[in-house]
């Protein structure tokens, strides 16, 4: 009796599992392409916003390299290299501000080889809606205030929120979020400024395979 019940239940459950898993895998195979496309489009959209087409003529998305750099993030981050007529024209990197009000803030920072900041975008954050979420382009223009700025030295005092005596406005009511973003952009910019030549020259491991794998976690 026990054996019979075990056999029956085991086989049935196994059967259901196989069918379910098969279905899921099937759908995954079918949608794989579309999902990849979506992610590409998303990243590209952000990239194109801060590195306008006039500044590059290569395929930015496929110029991506994976960079392991503790100064930027604990994990390897993608670096995008823009060329205009074969000449290096722009450099974008994903930076992480670890000290946001509620968790990490993922940013995309782009500079010209000259060191001037092209632009910054927020890729992902969990800041308080209505307060900290003003770092989103859709909510506020604040994030665009980085464009055109330069970093003079590693401890350039102007690179801070106004409250701390810097040149970046903090939005009303929140100090922590902008402070974190400014800090992260500052260190990313510094890194890019220091290593721009090198970054254009070294070959980096391709990032797409790894990135897509990540998105399925």
């Amino acid at each position: 009796m026990t054996l019979n019940s075990m056999q029956k239940n085991g086989l049935l459950l196994g059967l259901f599992a196989l069918v379910s898993t098969g279905l899921v895998l099937g759908v995954e195979a079918l949608t794989k392409e579309a999902i990849g496309e979506q992610q590409r489009a998303q990243t590209l959209a952000s990239l194109n916003e801060i590195i306008p087409p006039t500044l590059h003529d290569n395929d930015l998305y496929h110029s991506c390299g994976l960079l392991s750099e503790p100064a930027l993030s604990e994990q390897p981050v993608p670096v995008y290299r823009g060329y205009l007529a074969g000449e290096p024209s722009a450099l974008a990197v994903e930076a992480v501000a670890p000290n946001g009000y509620s968790g990490k803030i993922r940013l995309l920072v782009a500079i010209k080889p000259s060191g001037e900041v092209l632009g910054v975008r927020t890729l992902q954050h969990q800041e308080t809606p209505g307060l900290g979420d003003k770092i989103e382009k859709q909510k506020s223009d604040w994030i665009t205030s980085f464009a055109g700025k330069r970093l003079r030295s590693q401890d350039d005092e102007r690179w801070a929120v106004q409250r701390d005596g810097g040149m970046f406005d903090q939005f009303t009511g929140a100090t922590i979020t902008p402070r974190a973003v400014v800090g992260a952009v500052k260190s990313a910019t510094w890194y890019l400024q220091q290593n721009s030549t090198q970054l254009f020259q070294t070959s980096l491991p391709n990032c797409h395979s790894a990135l897509e794998g990540e998105s399925h976690e």
């Binding site: 075990m6 056999q7 239940n9 459950l13 259901f16 599992a17 898993t21 895998l25």
Partner: peptide, 27 residues
């Protein structure tokens, strides 16, 4: 990976099914 996934889940389900079948009678 397709086959591995199928096999892994199938085997897991089989084991749990056996356990449940056993428990249903025993307890």
């Amino acid at each position: 990976s397709f086959v591995v996934g199928l096999l892994a889940i199938g085997a897991l389900a089989l084991i749990f099914g056996l356990i449940l079948g056993f428990a249903a009678i025993k307890f």
